[in-house]
Design a protein around this nucleic acid. Structure first.
Length: 110
DNA sequence: AAGGTGACCGGCC
DNA sequence: TGGCCGGCCACCT
């Protein structure tokens, strides 16, 4: 049942699922790919539902500062950080170290 | 149907 | 990236 609203969410999920292992991206980057760079908030909202799905690695999505703003929404307080460090990403004080190095630019399709 | 909300971003001080 | 303000768009009650 692909309704218009679900379609938007699916867009975010599709991009998030394409995030390579050991890489992260920002909400604004995803929103930009979706065509609405200013609706980054909506991406976060979509992620809110996305984190409920195991198909979407929401832990690889952070804000443009490389800060784990959404870690508070995870099951555990430091679960998000644990997952990122598990992928080789260094996180200190909820902030990704060398964020630019692990940053991955999302794309709609290949 | 309308209002409030939100895991943000960009600009300015 | 320190802090504050406005914008923007879809979801929820």
């Amino acid at each position: 049942m692909e309704t218009t609203s679900d379609n938007f969410f699916e867009r975010v999920y599709a991009v998030a699922r394409r995030i390579p292992y050991g890489k992260v991206t920002s909400y604004g980057a995803i929103a930009k790919v979706l065509g609405s760079a200013r609706s980054a908030r909506m991406v976060g909202w979509a992620m809110n539902a996305a984190h409920n799905l195991e198909d979407v690695p929401a832990h690889r999505v952070v804000n443009r500062k490389g800060l784990l703003t959404g870690k508070h929404h995870f099951d555990g307080t430091n679960l998000m950080q644990q997952l990122l460090e598990s992928e080789g990403i260094v996180v200190v004080d909820n902030q990704i170290i060398d964020f630019e190095s692990v940053f991955w630019e999302p794309e709609m399709a290949v």
